[in-house]
Simulated assay, not measured.
Amino acid sequence: MPRQRLASRILLISPSNRMLLFKILYRTGALAGISYWATPGGKLWAKESYEAAAIRELYEETGIEVQSVGQCLAHKEFPWVMPDGELVLAVEHYFVVRAHDVQLSNASWSDKEREVICEVRWWSEEELAACREPVFPPELSSLFAQALTRNLHLT
């Protein structure tokens, strides 16, 4: 049984109903040459809740501060290969946050984030549905549609 990697992911929705995604591109290591689009988010620290991790990761990766992220929209579990080649069981909770504007900051990015994030883009539902590049999770279009029907938490 692989170890579990607990993580929080954020569906950040703009005032014009676009969702923020990062393009991840691995240039070295076991995943060299692999790229995909994904939401902001990351692993939980020791004894950190999914909600606290979502708040922290949102700030670290976008500069947006929130006090809460509301209820979990989705829970996903799937096998995942880490950059060092380790196979883990990814256990992810997805939260929805509505941003007041689209101004972002990468000032708190880690060195690893600076190394692998090669593009940051706001996507419409239609653009995401038409995307031919890998997107994680694969059902992100469906989660995006669900997020837009929810009473979203405002930043």
Rank of each mutant, 00 (worst) to 15 (best):
A90T: 09
V96I: 06
I55D: 00
K112Q: 14
Y59D: 05
L12E: 02
D84S: 07
W123S: 03
S124H: 06
E92W: 05
S142K: 13
P138E: 12
A38P: 06
Y59C: 04
A147H: 00
A52M: 10
L6K: 14
L140F: 05
V81Y: 10
L11K: 01
I13E: 04
V120F: 03
A52V: 04
P138W: 09
L89A: 14
R132L: 13
R27A: 11
T155R: 06
K112Y: 15
S16E: 11
I34Y: 13
R9A: 10
A53N: 04
A145S: 07
A30C: 04
Q103F: 08
L20P: 01
A54H: 03
A46E: 15
A130M: 13
E92C: 10
P79N: 10
V91E: 12
V66T: 11
P138F: 13
R5D: 14
G33Y: 10
L152R: 07
V69T: 01
T149D: 08
P138G: 13
S142Q: 12
C118S: 15
G70L: 02
V88K: 10
I24L: 09
K112E: 15
R98P: 01
S108C: 11
E119Y: 09
T28R: 12
S68P: 01
G41R: 05
A74F: 07
W80Q: 15
L6C: 10
Q4C: 14
E127S: 12
K47W: 09
H100C: 06
S16H: 10
R9Q: 14
L20K: 01
A129K: 12
W80R: 13
V96Y: 02
G41N: 09
T155H: 03
S141M: 05
P138C: 06
S14G: 02
V88P: 13
G85S: 08
P2D: 12
L12D: 01
V97T: 01
A32R: 05
L6G: 10
I64L: 09
A53H: 04
I13M: 05
A32K: 06
S124D: 03
T149W: 04
G29M: 05
M1N: 14
E127F: 11
V120H: 05
V91C: 15
K43M: 12
I34P: 08
I64A: 03
E51I: 08
Y50C: 03
N151Q: 15
E65S: 08
V88A: 11
R18T: 04
F95G: 09
R98K: 08
P79I: 10
P138H: 11
F22I: 09
L6I: 11
P134S: 06
W45R: 13
W122V: 02
S108G: 07
S35R: 13
R18C: 06
R56P: 00
A147R: 00
V135Q: 04
D101K: 04
G70P: 03
P15W: 04
L11R: 00
C118E: 11
S142G: 15
T28E: 15
L21Y: 02
R132Q: 15
E113Q: 13
L25C: 15
R132S: 15
L21W: 00
P137E: 11
L128V: 07
S49V: 07
F144R: 08
E65T: 08
F22H: 14
L25E: 13
L44K: 07
K76L: 11
S16I: 08
E48S: 09
H75F: 12
Y94N: 15
G42S: 05
Q67R: 15
P138N: 15
R150Q: 11
V102L: 11
A38D: 14
E119H: 14
S124N: 08
